[in-house]
Amino acid sequence: MQWWEENKRQTARIALAIAMVVGVDIVARLILRLAMPDSQDDIIPGLIVDACIATTIGVWAFFRARRALVSTVAGEGFFVIAISMLLIAFIGPWVSGDGFGAPIGVMAGRCAVAALVLAVGGALGILTAVAFGIDPLSKAYHAHVERTRQRPRRR
């Protein structure tokens, strides 16, 4: 109970991010299924769905990195990636119309692709926040530099 009281905000944040990523994946697959019902091509729809989920986790990581340290965002992002990849590998093909039953090797391959895509998106989000200097460490560094500049020099 004490653990829950201490971690419920973080748990809710991670759950929300997972729901966002999986939700975007499902919506993107449904839209593509409706828009291209006769398509035999797997590559283009797959790339579009991957781009959507990478962008989603990238935006989440960017905004999260404004308030939390990079190590915290990376840890939370790892949770999000691990659970999202399992859900995407399990639910995604069913939403696309392929059915549930796939060999575990194929499922593991889908997990690996989803994890790679999500990791690249999350890393880009964090690195963009660092590049803009809006993460807490960069802000603390700039504040320290400003204070040092304003301080009168000792003689």
């Binding site: 990376a74 790892f78 990849m85």
Partner: peptide, 16 residues
């Protein structure tokens, strides 16, 4: 996957 994720994520969240 989840059993490996939890300790990795916890170790990543430890501040330097």
């Amino acid at each position: 996957a989840i059993a490996a994720t939890v300790p990795i994520a916890r170790s990543m969240m430890v501040n330097m």
